[in-house]
Design a binder for these strands. Structure first.
Lengths: 115, 115
DNA sequence: CTGTATCCTACGAGATACTG
DNA sequence: CAGTATCTCGTAGGATACAG
């Protein structure tokens, strides 16, 4: 009961199955920041202006489910939770780097060639 | 009136501004298929099982706006429209390749390490 | 501090029917 | 063939309040 409702099953396109991982408003941004090191919930939230606790939590749970991020809970008061990339998440970084490079170029285009 | 309503403006994360380009259910898949060559509307639709004309059209218009795809209209009856990647779109391919590689590995994980 | 639990709204995207 | 025009629905994601 995890991807039964996900109708994209195209054998012709290898990226279709992982489309959900890269979608989502904050996914990539979260991964980006986590690539710089382990972070606590609050830290992460402060990095993402405009995200609400509820939204951030939901996104993190998703990324956890996708095995992208690891959640380390410290049993203490006040609570402390640290997020970090998993092996799979780390293997994803080349994608992020490529995207980052492209984004930089793209921005140049946007400010020159576009209206 | 194009990104005024797009509140992510984080200077700290370079990929935030292009997040919209990679989101969307079909964007990446479309780019993937267009990377294999110029395609007509109908061809593209047949490649994407489950997509409706309305949805595909909308996505293509978006990708056009993002300067990712080029739309070539042949003034004739019946109409013929060909879609292809722009320069920006082609520069994006490394990202797609990286994602593709990762996706392949990821699939392996999903079928072995996951329940 | 790090969450849940609701409520609410905007938007993506499918279904369907119609046009040049 | 390649679109538009509506309608509808599900869901992502914001606001807010409360909890351990």
């Amino acid at each position: 009961m995890k991807n039964e409702n996900y109708e994209i099953d195209i054998t012709q396109c290898p990226i279709a199955p992982v489309q959900k991982v890269i979608s989502g408003k904050w996914n990539m941004v979260i991964i980006y920041f986590l690539s710089q090191g382990v972070m606590r919930f609050g830290e992460l939230q402060r990095k993402l202006p405009g995200v609400t606790q509820a939204a951030l939590t939901k996104q993190l749970r998703l990324l956890e489910e996708y095995k992208m991020v690891h959640r380390e809970i410290y049993k203490q008061v006040p609570p402390k939770v640290e997020y970090s990339l998993t092996e799979t998440g780390i293997k994803f970084l080349p994608v992020l780097t490529a995207l980052e490079e492209w984004a930089t170029e793209y921005q140049v285009l946007e400010s020159s060639a576009l209206s």
